[in-house]
Design a protein around this nucleic acid. Structure first.
Length: 430
RNA sequence: GGAGAGGUGGCCGAGCGGCCGAAGGCGCUUGACUCGAAAUCAAGUGUGGGGCAACUCACCGUGGGUUCGAAUCCCACCCUCUCCGCCA
């Protein structure tokens, strides 16, 4: 959410900065509602003040006298007036909230111009494309052939966009989760969190999923809970409605959760394989920082995600999302795109964003720089470190061998019984 | 699921329908004392909104209601705890 008061002070600048996202956003209704809101507050406060004074006098007045009755009747009227004003205020505030919650974040000044993903500049490239002396398979083809991934039976037991992992693939998924968490919690200094996998609507609003992207969430209608679309939601909301001690910042959390997304509107996109699933695993990094520190923390956090790819020996590039491609809540985002030789393409495997105070204003996450000072909003950041399913895709495609096996990257071997290869499943079980 | 108890400021904890934004304690900040520290003493110490400001308004789990007036009374909901039942 944006600061309506700041917005009202300098509408032109805000409108211009929002316009960089490429969609016309009319701020005038928001300003009008805000003006109306102030007006109602002033009028009802004035009445309340008058009423308070009167009541003070009534406390000591003779309760049986005629003056008291007259006073009482007058105050009854005033109380009703206040009630009417309050009801109008409630309506105005609800509409203002509604509109304000839909406004996207301001892109950071550093965000490059551009209308779509095609215009995202590549800021750096790590490693090189592996060379094969055979035609590398796409991971889904490889997974089916070796019996490591079973898409058909997943459709039977659940439906489209779910996958059953078997044997070495299941072990690889589990190993990646452990490897990433270990790396982040030791070398990178994050505290491990294992949050609930379901959250309430307030949490979803705090991080910006609601109200705009409600369609994307799996809902437990009976209980009012939602399956987490990312660990960002429970972990960022950990400190909702809290005032953190400034000395504690930056706070860094790493969390594994499965992620559940309806993928509404993406029919026909990435229908094969593990790339786009209704349920996938992810290790997420979340940071809470001071406003001064968030740009630095963003670079750092991105580096932590990159480190995982480097340790796995996977070639990737980093792109700086242009204004037109930036997510709704983000002020700045770097995407990590891993090379997939089977698909002959770079695919997003991590998205690292600085939300500045967009989420913290919604979720009321503040800090106090020093005792006695006013609380101020923290900056929140997060990034995948990494998406596990897509990392499995990358390992399968990059480390496949001519004889249908998959070489295991050195760093994963301690998590995989010390094996050097993932072997195909026995043919009779497939 | 059944029975009961309870939700008050950073924490603990009081609170006859008006004198309660809220006693007291702890914690914290500042000052005094001290070579310094501890102890002691004194003062201060919630959040948000409106207003250039003086100032003013709201907030005692949430939402309604009664009343001139609600932290205090009534209703609904949420949450926590205890016991019983069920259960990985």
């Amino acid at each position: 959410m944006l600061d309506i008061r700041l917005l009202a002070q300098d509408p032109e600048t805000f409108a211009a900065r929002l316009a960089r996202r490429g969609k016309g956003i009319d701020l005038e209704p928001v300003f009008a509602l805000d003006r109306r809101r102030r007006e109602l507050i002033q009028r009802s406060d004035e009445l309340r003040h008058r009423k308070g004074k009167a009541e003070e006098a009534m406390k000591t007045a003779d309760k049986k006298g005629p003056d008291f009755a007259a006073f009482r009747d007058e105050m009854r009227t005033v109380a009703n007036e206040i009630k009417v004003l309050e009801e109008s205020l409630k309506v105005v505030e609800a509409e203002l909230d509604e509109r304000a919650l839909y406004l996207p974040n301001l892109p950071d000044d550093a965000v490059p111009e551009g209308a779509s993903a095609d215009e995202n500049p590549v800021v750096r490239v790590w490693g090189e494309k592996p060379v094969f002396d055979f035609e590398p398979l796409e991971h889904d083809r490889l997974g089916e052939k070796t019996g490591l991934l079973d898409f058909e039976r997943a459709v039977k037991i659940t439906g489209a966009r779910f996958t059953v992992y078997r044997g070495g693939a299941a072990r690889l998924e589990r190993a990646l989760i452990n490897f990433m968490l270990e790396q982040h919690t030791t070398a990178h200094g994050y505290t491990e969190i294992l949050p609930p996998f379901m959250v309430n609507a307030t949490s979803m609003q705090g991080t910006g999923q609601f109200p705009k992207f409600r369609e994307e969430a799996f809902e437990m209608e009976k209980d009012g809970f939602f399956l987490v679309p990312t660990a960002e939601v429970p972990v960022t909301n950990l400190h909702r409605d809290e005032i953190l001690d400034g000395k504690r910042l930056p706070v860094r959390y790493a969390a594994y959760t499965p992620c559940f997304r309806r993928e509404a509107g993406s029919y026909g996109k990435d229908t094969r394989g593990l790339i786009r699933q209704h349920q996938f695993n992810k290790v997420e990094l979340v940071q809470f920082t001071t406003p001064e520190d968030s740009a630095r923390a963003h670079e750092e956090l991105t580096g932590h995600a990159e480190k995982i790819l480097q340790l796995l020996g996977l070639h990737y590039r980093v792109v700086d999302l242009c204004a037109g491609d930036l997510g709704n809540a983000a002020a700045r985002t770097y995407d990590l795109e891993v090379w997939l030789p089977g698909q002959n393409a770079y695919r997003e495997i991590s998205s690292c964003s600085n939300f500045r105070d967009f989420q913290s204003r919604r979720a009321a996450i503040r800090f106090r720089a020093e005792a006695g000072k006013k609380p101020q909003l923290v900056h929140t950041l997060n990034g995948s470190g990494l998406a596990i399913g897509r990392t499995v895709v990358a390992v399968l495609e990059n480390y496949q061998t001519a004889d249908g096996r998959v070489r295991i990257p050195e760093v994963l071997r301690p998590f995989m019984r010390g094996d050097a290869f993932i072997e195909p499943e026995s043919a009779e079980m497939i």
